[in-house]
Amino acid sequence: MTLKHHVILITGAGGGLGSTAALALAKNGAHVILLDKNIAKLEAVYDAILAANAPEPVIYPFDLAGANENEYQELANKINEEYGSLQGLLHSAVEFSSFTPLCQFGTKEWGHTLNVNLNAAFILTRMLLPVLEKSQHASIVFTSDSSARKAHAYSGAYGVSKIAMEGLAKILAEELEAANKIRVNILVPGAVDSPLRKRAYPAEDKAKLPTMESLVPAYLYLFGSQSIGVTGQTIEAPTFHL
């Protein structure tokens, strides 16, 4: 299952899941565009990909929450000019601070969380659709959260953003299905030993959790040829098997 000649943009590429996906996709031949606001983390992922003798990635420092629409358009234009098309878009960036009652949420924190988790995913997808449509087959993957989907108490803006993001993905999948060029799916990683999990559940015994590398088969499937024609689906990583 090769991803040679695939160009895939990954948001939150410096984070735990984003970097795991970037390395796995690159090892399978993809040319990955690493997008994150943390340059040091991007450089670490870049070095890991080179060390694996995978195709050299591109680092694109970008603040999803702070960027304006023109900056998003500039990103899309650069990808179009450099590659002519895009075969994959992975929304892996995430903002989560803590479990907080809604009555204690500040307006600024609420807005920032929704900007990163929801609004940025919408704007970036909209800007990149013309570039994705130039591919014979392209894949958009939104990263969700099983606990947030159940609307648990105290999940706050994070929970709301994930619920809304799943709605966005489902609507987009239906709108694009007839053209049969861009598939849109949701990946639910489940409980894995990730940096986000450490922040959310600091007292949990992480040794009992699957590693982030356990998600690699799901990433390869969603961006590989085996998932062509599969759209509007929610892939639960803990139960996923090729």
Rank of each mutant, 00 (worst) to 15 (best):
T100M: 09
D145P: 04
N119S: 12
A44R: 12
L42K: 02
I8C: 03
S214G: 02
S85G: 05
K27R: 15
N185F: 07
I228Y: 08
D36A: 05
N70S: 11
T143A: 13
L176D: 01
Y158A: 00
D193S: 13
L132Y: 04
V192K: 11
Y158M: 03
E213C: 05
A93D: 08
K134T: 14
D47P: 11
L172W: 04
N80Y: 12
D205H: 02
M127H: 10
A40H: 14
A30L: 05
G12T: 02
A30E: 04
Y72G: 06
L25Y: 08
K78S: 14
H152Q: 13
K108Q: 03
M212L: 09
L90P: 05
R126Q: 13
E174Y: 15
D36Q: 01
T234E: 02
T2L: 03
L42A: 07
R126M: 10
D205F: 04
Y201I: 07
F223T: 04
I59S: 15
T125Q: 07
E74I: 15
V116W: 03
M1Q: 10
V131K: 13
V32T: 02
L89I: 03
E95F: 11
G66Y: 04
G167Q: 00
P202D: 01
K150T: 14
P238V: 05
L90N: 04
Q104S: 14
E81P: 08
T100R: 11
G14R: 14
K208Q: 05
N119C: 15
E166T: 09
P202F: 03
I235W: 00
K198Y: 15
L222I: 09
G159P: 14
V230N: 11
S19E: 10
L3A: 05
H112P: 01
K37V: 10
V131N: 02
L124A: 13
S227E: 00
S98G: 13
G14P: 12
S194T: 10
A26Y: 07
F240Q: 12
A24I: 02
K4M: 00
G106M: 09
N53P: 07
F62W: 10
V160T: 14
L86I: 04
S146G: 15
L35Y: 03
E81G: 05
A22L: 01
A151W: 00
N38T: 09
D47Y: 09
G66N: 01
G88M: 06
E175C: 15
R197S: 05
S19Y: 07
K206W: 10
G15R: 08
S146C: 07
T113H: 00
A200W: 07
I49K: 05
K37N: 08
A120H: 14
I186D: 06
Y83S: 07
N77Q: 12
D145G: 04
Q233D: 11
D205T: 01
G167F: 01
I10Q: 09
I228C: 01
A54V: 05
A54N: 07
A65M: 01
F105E: 11
Y158Q: 01
V192I: 14
M1D: 10
H5V: 04
I235S: 02
L25P: 04
Q73G: 14
I123E: 15
V188M: 13
N180C: 00
